[in-house]
Amino acid sequence: MQDIRRPTMKSPHSRPGARALTRSIVLAGLFSLGLAQSQAAETDYPRQPVSIIVPFAPGGSLDATARVIAEKLRDLLGQPVLVVNRPGAGSAVGARYVAQAKPDGYTLFIASGSAFGFLNLIVPNFEYQLKDYAPLGGVAVYTSLFATNASVQAKTLPELVKLSRERPGGLSFCTTGVSGLNHLQLEMFKGLVKAKTGTALNVIHVPYNGVAPALTALKAGEVQACALPYSTIVRNFEGNGIHNIAVQRHERLKAMPQVGTTGEQGYAEMDDNEQLVTLSAPAGTPAPVIAKLESALQTTMKDPEIVKKLNDLDVQPTFVGSAEARKWLEKDVTKFSKVIKAAGLAVQQ
């Protein structure tokens, strides 16, 4: 008998083209599901507590500022907002922690100034730069100043420059730490003096670990001059051991109207040295999350109670949006990167 076999019927999914099509449909479905879940997470943000990382120990002005801001953000976001201190290596420990965090809006970074944008130049093995952070906005401004011991016969910057050259051995000039912003401001001043007069400022840098020991040393006459952040303590010591001779800003401080600006004394380049206090998230944080946090910060800074609390901390409350904050930081990073390199402070990575 003739062997009659039916032709084998292949499943349409067994054909190569069909299999590829099926895979594409499945992958597209999974992608759409993942995208939908991601968008839902962004829309529902926040669904858990948010942490603000402070790169210094508790008790300082930045820590206090963070706690005031966190209090209001908690009410606006409907979730606990925790202030977590991660000090060490200047601000590098906290800055690294945030740069490495998941970019989901639950780990934020508060910084006074742009130092976290150039830590890669001054901290060994620190690889992160400003591009690794997403600024959310600025909430306050810190002002720095130059001060002398009350016995020093120099009441202006030009007089201080002149005295440094006349005094045998020069002047001892303190800051709040090696490679900190006050140190960089001193190095910037030294560079400007040399450029404008052709002769170096004759000073010996004496770094202290923070504001309190630097101010104590200045008041006691252990050093003749100092670059310091403005505070009520500094203001109250005016005429009581120290003399404030210049504020690094465009306008005089209302609290110390008798103290001239750096620009009024021939060093206008230093008027831009005010430090913007910013909050940032890790780079890659979704745009809707950044927008929600930026809006919350703006609302926070419209609250009269928050403004009063920050004024009481001797910071100048403000609000600077995300885009403007990034421009401010980029300008500062460019400026101080040049100062670091010119002063020979850059480390080999």
Score class of each variant (00 low, 15 high):
Q224P: 06
D314V: 00
E269D: 15
Q2K: 06
S280W: 02
M301N: 07
I233H: 05
R249S: 11
M301A: 12
S322F: 05
R326F: 07
R167G: 00
K219V: 14
A325Y: 07
L329R: 11
L121S: 02
V50F: 07
L33D: 13
A20Q: 10
A115K: 02
A217L: 14
K155D: 09
D44G: 04
Y208H: 14
A147Y: 03
A20M: 12
I290H: 08
T199K: 12
G241H: 01
A134K: 14
G198L: 09
P49M: 07
E238S: 01
Q37V: 14
A342W: 02
K194C: 07
V161M: 03
A111E: 15
V203F: 02
V247N: 15
P282D: 08
P55V: 00
G105E: 11
V98Q: 02
I290C: 05
E187A: 12
V68M: 05
P304E: 02
K327Y: 00
K162Y: 04
Q39C: 04
M301C: 10
E127K: 07
A92G: 00
G60N: 15
G239L: 01
F31D: 03
G177F: 13
K219A: 14
V141K: 14
L276K: 02
A89C: 00
T299K: 15
T175C: 13
A246Y: 01
L181I: 13
L145M: 14
P286T: 07
S280N: 13
A95V: 01
A255I: 09
F109P: 00
P46E: 10
H250F: 14
A214F: 05
T8F: 12
F118S: 01
G113L: 04
N120Y: 14
A217Q: 08
G344H: 10
D104M: 07
D271W: 02
T143F: 08
S51R: 13
